[in-house]
Design a binder for these strands. Sequence first.
DNA 1: AAGCGAACCTGGCTGC
DNA 2: TGCAGCCAGGTTCGCT
Length: 293
Amino acid sequence: MPELPEVETVRRGLEPFMAGHIFTKVEQRRPNLRFPFPEGFVARLEGRRLTALGRRAKYLVGDLDDGTVLVMHLGMSGSFRIDYDGDASAPGVFHHDRSKSAAHDHVVFQMSNGARVTYNDPRRFGFMDLIARSDLSSHALFRDIGVEPLGNELDGKLIAAAFAGKKAPLKAALLDQTLIAGLGNIYVCEALHRAGLSPRRAAGTLAARKGLMLGKADLLAGTIREVLQEAVAAGGSSLRDHRQADGTLGYFQHSFRVYDREGEACPTPACMGVIQRLVQSGRSTFFCKVCQR
DNA sequence: AAGCGAACCTGGCTGC
DNA sequence: TGCAGCCAGGTTCGCT
């Protein structure tokens, strides 16, 4: 499920059940996901307290009380669910999601507060790692990651500079995690439509603001921020019944303007276009060729 | 060296 | 009903 809004939604769902609590038992049911689990994964977690659960790009980043960081990536199909043995009437406690096969339950975290947190991932493109907090920013996974689109750095000037000279299409440049971190196929399509920019336009053609005149790069920075904020507020998007950690469904998919809407009328006011699908670097792009130039 | 397509893996849906 | 083929929210590798 995981672009930035979905990962952030997972983070918020897990935080109250995990942060501040101790891993009393960890089950690792297979030797690898996308990559092998790190040496001693279970032993290095059991008995440790998770002091905080954060997010960087599409990574969940959990600090342990010994200076280690538990890094988790959901790949394409990873999800968490929570079973809580405590007071079932407590606020924020939800039902177990039984819609997924236990055959793909790869990791189970038993926490000291009675919460059981299960990681399920049919395609196994996700992974987990343990990295010293002091090495995190220089680690290969994080070293080259670009700006957080919901942080303060993202603006038209940054986009124009990052995309300068690029002949690759905007679609590809926006998916490049070393430039802007956290966008994926859905939100790139949505941000480009809102900005009225063609996914095929060369990335290097966006200008930043000159004086009072806003450039297309400024417009795009605004729509990226806007669509991500709206999606986070909606609890992310739930395709194929993908659920939040608490078992509830995000609902931003109902707000898609173009993604997976091939053949539908373009939602731009007064636009007579029809949403088209095309393939760019092996992925589906949805856009309106009338109002996106 | 940037920019593509293929690969990783499983499951769900479509169409014959 | 069965099965082949295509598609899926991500990332990395290897070939122009």
